[in-house]
């Protein structure tokens, strides 16, 4: 039996998985904020509670991010401050991919 614990509702539900515990937290700490052992335990208990399900199930945890309340606007933000930098990142990414391919580093 598989239980997914994550923080990307759209991607996981698009994929379709048997049991998904959604923690609405920044990507990086799916169990809870760093060093918050009570939250990590809480998430595991929530996940194991889903073992009783008899059909595919999505559970949304009530854990909340304890830091910046505006955290949801940060990830992959695009604005005038980073447009040029993003284009450079893309060029570097494409150069690296071509280099890997030339070296046979591909699956």
């Amino acid at each position: 039996m598989t239980i997914v614990i994550g923080s990307a509702m759209d991607i996981v539900t698009h994929c379709k998985v048997p049991r998904y515990l959604h923690n609405d937290l920044p990507l990086g700490n799916p169990l809870g904020a760093p060093d918050d052992r009570a939250s990590h335990r809480y998430s595991l208990l929530k996940a194991f509670a889903m073992t009783d399900a008899t059909s595919p199930l999505v559970t949304v945890s009530d854990l909340r991010w304890p830091g910046d309340p505006d955290w949801k606007s940060v990830y992959n933000r695009i604005d005038d401050s980073n447009r040029d930098q993003l284009l450079k990142m893309g060029e570097e990414n494409r150069r690296k991919r071509a280099e890997n391919k030339a070296q046979g580093l591909t699956r």
């Binding site: 920044p26 990086g28 799916p30 760093p34 991010w65 910046d68 955290w71």
Partner: peptide, 11 residues
């Protein structure tokens, strides 16, 4: 930007 992964237990 928002968090870190220094605490292994968080993932």
């Amino acid at each position: 930007e928002t968090t870190h992964t220094d605490d292994r237990e968080s993932y």
